[in-house]
Computed example of a mutant assay.
Amino acid sequence: MTYQLYIGDRTFSSWSLRGWLMFEKFNLPYDAHLVGLYAGTYRDELAHLKPAKTVPAAQTPEGYVLTDSLAIAETLVERHPEVALYPSDPAARALARSITAEMHGGFGNLRGECPMFLAHIWEGFAPSGGVLDDLERIETLWALARERHGQDGPWLFGEYSLADVFYAPVAMRITAYDLPVGSQAKDYVSAHLSDPAFLKWRRDAMEERHTPWPYPMDLSKRPWPSDAG
């Protein structure tokens, strides 16, 4: 019962990271296939998965095609009720689903101005008012989840859930652009940065080569936290 998961360049593809974490963190069987998101070959490589045209895309063992990260997540919840993809407590589950959906559909300023990448930290990046507004809302959601349901672990709801999957690339953006957040948010970001699954993803990402660099910036840079020292 092995799923087929199609992902793009690990260094830049935030949605691919989400798709991969759903399988990796919850020990669901999968084979990963890397497609050329930035090389421009991905459409041909996804052609057999109609109507897929973006990553991540997944195929169930029966051959059903899933073309969106939230669709993949909800299908896994449906197919694997024995796996704690969301919290079991009804109130926590409702909040987790709500903030996951908000991440999936929102925060366009943060996404647009701060593309995810994992190579280094930019120094001197000046976030716009829209990015700061997105960060304020994200911190509010994180704090609410932690206050109500997150006392028993480092994650939003104590134990790792799909909510953490969907906010993992936000943690990477906060890191890469050195974005201003409070101490509680920094602790949560640190949990992602030290997570063994993410460290595995980043090791593979650092083997990738990109010429030209997709998101050039006229800024200084310093090492990614795990590369420093």
Rank of each mutant, 00 (worst) to 15 (best):
L34Y: 11
Y215P: 09
V181E: 00
E208C: 12
L162K: 05
G124P: 09
S13R: 06
V131D: 00
D134N: 14
A205V: 13
D133R: 13
G8I: 04
W15E: 00
G129R: 10
L156S: 01
Y215D: 07
T2S: 14
F117P: 02
E45I: 14
T67S: 12
A58Y: 01
E102N: 10
V165P: 02
C114S: 07
T211A: 14
G124Q: 09
W224K: 12
D227A: 15
T54D: 02
D44F: 08
A84L: 04
A176M: 05
L179G: 10
F166W: 01
S128A: 12
I99E: 00
H120S: 15
L76G: 03
A145K: 05
A171L: 05
M1I: 07
A168K: 02
M1W: 07
H48C: 13
A126F: 07
L110F: 03
M116G: 07
W213P: 08
A58Q: 01
D44Y: 08
F198R: 03
V65I: 15
T41M: 05
S194L: 14
L85M: 07
V170A: 08
Y188S: 11
E24A: 15
P127V: 11
G36V: 11
W20G: 05
T2G: 11
A228E: 15
G150F: 03
R148A: 04
P81V: 07
V189K: 10
L34I: 10
G40C: 10
S98C: 11
E45D: 12
T2C: 11
G19V: 10
Y42M: 14
V77P: 02
S161E: 01
Y6F: 15
G106N: 06
Y42E: 03
A145T: 13
Y160Q: 01
S88T: 14
R209M: 08
D204W: 10
